[in-house]
């Protein structure tokens, strides 16, 4: 799908001068960037840097002070179906009376229009997506009875069900077990192999080099943005995190610990 865009050189996402404020003080100031297609992009920055805020503003969930964003060269409103979103896990009530399959089916709602109800086809797609994240056995499990990692995988399956070309994932690796982390990164690489673009808010500096092709360093303003090997450097990280960063050298490899 999406042959037209793939052929041409339209970027999946361009952001121009984005500024967002909750009250008076901007929490995101004048951020501009262009995302290359088919890459895994890590968004890195300290707590409160505005990472979630940036994603929400791009998705039209928050009013912006200024700035333009385009998805495949068009306004977001026209391109909703090309965009998938995995919010932070704490953003929903996991005691809601529903099961894993049902949550994944919600990923199809955007494609159904105003009146069509989810049916057998949506159920099939949802089961498929659950299978891809290794959660098929838990399809009928009440969501509060899933572990944190399993809940995260359900959220991921829901995003897969959206069948998008551009994905935003807000801290998908936080509070998950090692097995889930591996499952997620495998999935991200599969998405990439299909030519999809994924922006991931990430906290664990130790895995950045391994996971991401490109990195964005963000702290209210954009500190740096580009291929991981150019951007993920000690000095730029210090600039992003200020004094909150401890750097340990370990067998020639610099391991960076975000000492929050």
């Amino acid at each position: 799908m999406n042959q037209r865009n793939r052929g041409s050189e339209v970027s999946p996402l361009t952001v121009e001068g984005l500024t967002v404020a909750y009250q008076k003080k901007p929490v995101l100031r004048n951020v501009s960037f262009e995302v290359p297609e088919g890459k895994l992009i890590g968004i890195i920055g300290p707590n409160g840097a505005g990472k979630s805020t940036m994603i929400k503003a791009i998705l039209g969930l928050l009013p912006r002070v200024s700035g333009e964003t385009e998805i495949y060269g068009r306004p977001y409103k026209e391109m909703r179906r090309k965009v998938g979103y995995v919010p932070q896990r704490e953003s929903v009530d996991w005691d809601f009376p529903t099961n894993a399959l049902d949550v994944v089916m919600m990923g199809r709602y955007g494609h159904l229009g105003w009146f069509k109800r989810p049916g057998a086809k949506e159920r099939e797609i949802a089961m498929d997506c659950l299978r891809k994240v290794g959660m098929a056995d838990y399809a009928h499990r009440q969501i509060s009875q899933l572990s944190g990692g399993q809940q995260q995988r359900v959220f991921l399956a829901r995003a897969l069900a959206q069948n998008a070309d551009l994905y935003f994932m807000d801290e998908p690796f936080v509070g998950v077990d090692a097995m889930t982390e591996r499952a997620i990164i495998t999935l991200l690489n599969e998405l990439k192999a299909q030519g999809k673009t994924v922006l991931v808010v990430h906290h664990d500096l130790a895995t950045v080099k391994e996971y991401f092709d490109w990195v964005m360093l963000l702290n209210v303003e954009m500190v740096a943005y580009g291929p991981t090997e150019d951007v993920f450097t000690k000095s730029l990280l210090h600039q992003t995190y200020g004094g909150r960063l401890a750097v340990f050298d370990h067998e020639d490899e610099a391991i960076l610990v975000d000492s929050r």
Partner: peptide
Amino acid sequence: GLFYKQFKLCAFDPAMALACGI
């Protein structure tokens, strides 16, 4: 009855609902 799926998604995950254009 007509908008059950919308009411459900708005109750469970309003951010997602908004992002979907609901």
